[in-house]
Design a protein around this nucleic acid. Structure first.
Length: 239
DNA sequence: GCGACAG
DNA sequence: ATCTTGTCGC
């Protein structure tokens, strides 16, 4: 873990936020992930237009089955604006609350955003990983930084995303004839790990199962279909 | 100055 | 991100 003042992110200036990102970058670890993966979580937030209310959540899936087994939902608020490159300061406080509420932490977390595929190599997935010590990776729907050549149209094809001469992630075709998603390691895993895991989490949709379910659940949470708290989603299957 | 720009 | 209907394509 790392020294982080209070998460007074709401009061930070972009200059201060940049300094925090540069400091956190010094703690990034991208060594290959060794252990066996048994659970993987998807993290995401849902917002209401013109409101500072944030509906955050994580959905834990079994791996490699990719079946939802639990979810943690929390309502929070933020006044930090959305600024490309600083998404972490707007979403992490809320996601952290939902994460702390989980009794048994997942082996790794996939975020709806980037890991090191970021101008300063400190996207939301990397930021959360360094702050909590968790194993993380990113999966964004649009390119934030770098350049890439359009990958082949078949599912599973991919292309490197490079920036200043280094590979910082991949543009991955998770479904035939659909726009690619952008994969990158967040913390405690290698570039290759992130790509391999993303491909194994691909189902019938463009978004990998972890983030797809996370998006679905936080949205149901925002509309009132599901209540806040930690919910076990698999016990009923035992009967 | 110009273009790019996760959610 | 969110507000929204039908519609084209696999």
């Amino acid at each position: 873990m790392v020294v982080t003042p209070e998460l007074n992110y709401d009061q930070l200036t972009l200059g201060e936020a940049t300094l925090i990102q540069q400091q956190l970058r010094g703690h990034l670890r991208l060594e290959p992930f060794q252990k066996e993966i048994k659970t993987i979580a998807g993290a995401d937030i849902s917002l209401t237009l013109y409101s500072e209310t944030v509906f955050a959540g994580l959905v834990i899936l079994s791996y490699p089955e990719l079946q939802p087994i639990a979810c943690s939902l929390v309502q929070s608020s933020t006044i930090f604006p959305y600024v490309p490159g600083y998404l972490a300061f707007r979403e992490i406080p809320a996601i952290l609350k939902a994460y702390e509420q989980i009794p048994v932490k997942p082996d790794l977390i996939m975020f709806d955003g980037n890991g090191i595929l970021h101008a300063r190599r400190m996207g939301i997935a990397s930021h959360f990983g360094v702050v909590t010590g968790a194993v993380t990776m990113g999966c964004a729907k649009k390119k934030l930084a770098g350049q890439y050549a359009e990958p082949g149209a078949s599912k599973g094809e991919y292309a490197n995303v490079t920036d200043k001469g280094e590979v910082i992630g991949y543009a991955v075709r998770t479904k035939e004839n659909v726009k690619p998603v952008f994969i990158s390691p967040g913390h405690q895993m290698s570039l290759e790990d992130s790509l391999a895991i993303a491909l194994k989490c691909t189902g019938k949709h463009r978004l990998p199962e972890p983030t797809r379910y996370a998006h679905e659940y936080v949205n149901k949470f925002r509309t009132g279909e599901i209540k806040a708290g930690y919910h076990d989603l698999s016990s009923w299957k035992l009967f």
